[in-house]
Design a protein around this nucleic acid. Structure first.
Length: 574
RNA sequence: GCCAAUGUAGCUCAGUCGGUAGAGCAAUUCACUCGUAAUGAAUAGGUCAUCAGUUCGAUUCUGAUCAUUGGCUCCA
C-alpha cells in the first residue's frame, strides 16, 4: 500500500462521507469537502436536518465503502460537459464557475459517487485507514452570513486505527482539562444569568490566582522600564468620534448613557485614554520612549454565538500597553518589547513560542515609508530574539503591521497571547506630537501591546495548560495540613501559623473524616502539598510531606519543608 | 446574529408515553478519633430555565423568550 499524505487521506475520506450521505439522502446538494488541520468536513444542503444519531449511520456506510476498496478515478472534461454532470448541484456549479478559464476541470469518481475536485486522492477507499465522524454544525455557503446556511459534518481520518485512537484520546484529555469544567470543579470563576452573558464572576480562588498574576505583571513592568496608568471605564462620545471607534466599531460597543446631556460610552479600548494622558502637556523627544501600561477593563458587545467560557467574553481586562517613541528608537523599542513579551510568556511555563508577522493590507492608513520602517523593525526584532516567524502578507490591520505570539500548551494546542501592533491611525486622529531636537513638531510612533491578551482568556489558557494543577507560586492553597485525629488539631494549627508567617498559603483540614478521605479531597483539589500530622510527627516535631510532583517524601522537620517550598517557589513553572 | 442540540438539587445525571420528581457526590446535624485516594446514620435541598397556550390537570405537548454547547461569522 502506498503511503499517502494525511491531508490526502482526509480529503478522500470527505468524498467517501459525501458518497454515504448521497446514499442516505438522495436530495442532498453538495458544496465542498476539504481536509482541515485535524480532519475534514463536507458541507451539504438538504431537507433532512442531521442529528448526532445520523452520523452513526453515515459512518457505518463509510466503513462499508472503505472495506470495498473502491478506486478513485480521475478524469478531465470540458466546461460544458462539467455543467451537465453537475446539473441540479447549484453550489457545485458556482464552484465550477470559480475555476479559471483554461485551467483543467477534473472530476473524481468513486464507485457511484462523482465529485468535481482538483485532487489528489488515495488510490482506493481502502487506503483510508480509520475514520470517525465527530459533529454536525451549521456553516454559511462561502462563509458569508448573507448566504444560505449549509449543514457541515466534521470528521477525522488517519492512516491507522492506532493514530485515530491516540487522537481521540487527546480530545478526551482536552475535554478533561476544559477550563469551564475545571472552573466549576475547583470553584475558580462563574457566570450568572442575572449578571449577563460573557461577564465573568471571579470566585475567591480564581481571584487569588488573578491577583498573583497581576502582581507579578506589575512588578515586572516596573522592573522593565514601564509606567502604570489607571484610566476610567467610560468616556465621552467626542473621544470615540475622534478615535474613529464610533464609525468603525459601533456595533461592538455598549450603547451610550446620557449624563448631564452628554453621551458617555463604556470603553472598548484603553488607547484613547492613554493618548489623552500623552496630550496633557507638550512632549519633548527627551522623554521618549514612553512605555505606559494598564490593566484596563474593557467591554465589547460580542455576538452571542461567539461567547465561549473565559476565552471569549464581553467584559475583560487587557494587559495593555502603549509605547510612544521616536523613529530613531523604534528598532530598539520593538526588540525590547518582543524580548520582554517572550520572557513573560516563558515565566508562565510556555516555552514553545512562535511569532507571526502581519504586513500591510490593500486598504491602509499611514505613509508607506512608515510601514516599511515598522515592518523592518518587527522583522529585525524577531531575528534578534533568535526566532523565525511566519509572515501573513497583507494580514495586518488597516492601521499598522503587527506581530502576534502563539504559545503551545501542554497538549500541543496553539493559543495567541501577545500582540504587538503599530498604529498609524490614532496618532494622526489625535494629532499626537513631540518637539524634536530641531525644535519642530514631529509625529511619534505608537505601538499597542498586550502581553497576555486578556486576563480572563489567559487564565483560561493557564487552567487548561496545567489541567488545574497550578504551579506552587500560583496555587491558591499551597499546602493543607491534615491532622490524623482531633488530638493533633492544635499541632496542625501551630504548623499552619508558622507556615503562614513564612508567607505560604496554608489551611488545616479539621473535618472529622478519615485520613484517606482528606487526602482524596486534597488531591482532587490538586494541592501542591499535603501535610500529615499524627501522633508520631507531633512527638518528633516533624511533618509528613506528600508532594503533588514527587509523591510521598516521608516526615521532615518544618524548617526543611519551608526551605524546600521556597526553592520550588523560585521556579515558576513547577 | 445564523444553523443545530441542550436546559431536572451546589455538582454529575436518572425519570415521568400528561396526574407537581429521584440517585450519587457536596452541604447540615449526630456518632466515630481514625496513619496516606471515599467511616456510618439522619436531615435539609427542586415553581423540573422563564413566560404564554392547549388541557380537568403541564416538568412532560405546542409556541415564544433566555442561557449554555458545537460550528459559521466576527475578533476595528
Amino acid at each position: 500500500m502506498a503511503n499517502f499524505d494525511l491531508s490526502t487521506i482526509r480529503h478522500s475520506a470527505a468524498h467517501v462521507m459525501a458518497a454515504a450521505v448521497k446514499q442516505l439522502y438522495p436530495d442532498a446538494k453538495f458544496d465542498i469537502g476539504p481536509a482541515t488541520e485535524n480532519g475534514f468536513y463536507y458541507d451539504f444542503d438538504m431537507e433532512h436536518h442531521l442529528v448526532a444519531e445520523d452520523l452513526k449511520e453515515i459512518e457505518k456506510r463509510m466503513k462499508k465503502l472503505i472495506a470495498q476498496k473502491i478506486p478513485f478515478e480521475r478524469f478531465e472534461t470540458s466546461r460544458d460537459e462539467a455543467e451537465k454532470l453537475l446539473q441540479g448541484q447549484n453550489y457545485k456549479l458556482e464552484r465550477l464557475a470559480d475555476i479559471e478559464e483554461g485551467a483543467p476541470i477534473s472530476f473524481y469518481r468513486t464507485g457511484e459517487y462523482l465529485d468535481l475536485c482538483r485532487g489528489p486522492h488515495v488510490d482506493t477507499t481502502g487506503d483510508i485507514g480509520a475514520v470517525k465522524l465527530l459533529s454536525v454544525a451549521g456553516s454559511y455557503f462561502r462563509g458569508d452570513e448573507k448566504n444560505p446556511m449549509l449543514q457541515r459534518v466534521y470528521g477525522t481520518a488517519f492512516a491507522t486505527r492506532e493514530e485515530l485512537d491516540s487522537y481521540l484520546k487527546m480530545m478526551e484529555e482536552a475535554a478533561k482539562r476544559d477550563h469551564r469544567k475545571l472552573g466549576t470543579e475547583l470553584d475558580l470563576f462563574g457566570f450568572s444569568d442575572n449578571v449577563g452573558p460573557g461577564l465573568v464572576l471571579w470566585h475567591p480562588k480564581g481571584a487569588l490566582i488573578r491577583h498573583l498574576i497581576e502582581s507579578y505583571w506589575k512588578e515586572e513592568h516596573y522592573k522593565n522600564g514601564y509606567q502604570l496608568l489607571y484610566t476610567p471605564h467610560i468616556g465621552q462620545s467626542l473621544l470615540w468620534e475622534t478615535s474613529g471607534h464610533l464609525d468603525f466599531y459601533r456595533e461592538s460597543m455598549y450603547s451610550s448613557m446620557e449624563i448631564d446631556e452628554r453621551n458617555y460610552y463604556v470603553k472598548p479600548m484603553n488607547c484613547p485614554f492613554h493618548i489623552e494622558v500623552y496630550r496633557s502637556k507638550l512632549r519633548s523627544y527627551r522623554e521618549l520612549p514612553l512605555r505606559w501600561a494598564e490593566l484596563g477593563t474593557v467591554y465589547r458587545y460580542e455576538k452571542s454565538g461567539a461567547l465561549h467560557g473565559l476565552m471569549r467574553v464581553r467584559g475583560f481586562t487587557q494587559d495593555d500597553s502603549h509605547i510612544i517613541c521616536t523613529p530613531e528608537s523604534i528598532e530598539d523599542e520593538i526588540a525590547e518589547v518582543l524580548r520582554f513579551s517572550l520572557a513573560i510568556n516563558r515565566s508562565f511555563g510556555f516555552t514553545d513560542i512562535k511569532p507571526y508577522l502581519s504586513t500591510r493590507p490593500a486598504k491602509a492608513v499611514g505613509e508607506p515609508e512608515r510601514w516599511e520602517k515598522a515592518i523592518d523593525s518587527l522583522r529585525k526584532a524577531v531575528v534578534k530574539c533568535g526566532l523565525e516567524c511566519e509572515v501573513d502578507e497583507g494580514g495586518g490591520a488597516f492601521y499598522g503591521p503587527k506581530i502576534d505570539l502563539k504559545i503551545k500548551d501542554a497538549i500541543g494546542r496553539e493559543w495567541q497571547t501577545t500582540t504587538i501592533q503599530f498604529d498609524f491611525n490614532l496618532p494622526e486622529r489625535f494629532d499626537m506630537t513631540y518637539v524634536g531636537k530641531d525644535g519642530q513638531r514631529h509625529r511619534p510612533y505608537m505601538v499597542h501591546r498586550a502581553l497576555l491578551g486578556s486576563l480572563e482568556r489567559f487564565f483560561g489558557i493557564l487552567v487548561e495548560h496545567y489541567a488545574g494543577a497550578f504551579p506552587l507560586w500560583l496555587a491558591p492553597e499551597q499546602a493543607r495540613i491534615l491532622p490524623v485525629s482531633e488530638a493533633q488539631l492544635g499541632k496542625a494549627m501551630e504548623y499552619r501559623d508558622a507556615m503562614r508567617r513564612a508567607g505560604f498559603r496554608v489551611e488545616v483540614d479539621a473535618e472529622s473524616a478519615g485520613l484517606g478521605a482528606k487526602i482524596r479531597a486534597a488531591r482532587n483539589e490538586r494541592l501542591p502539598y499535603i501535610l500529615v500530622v499524627g501522633e508520631r510527627e507531633a512527638a518528633s516535631g516533624g511533618i509528613a510531606v506528600r508532594s503533588r510532583r514527587e509523591g510521598e517524601l516521608g516526615a521532615m522537620p518544618l524548617d526543611s519543608l519551608l526551605k524546600k517550598m521556597s526553592e520550588e517557589l523560585a521556579n515558576k513553572t513547577i
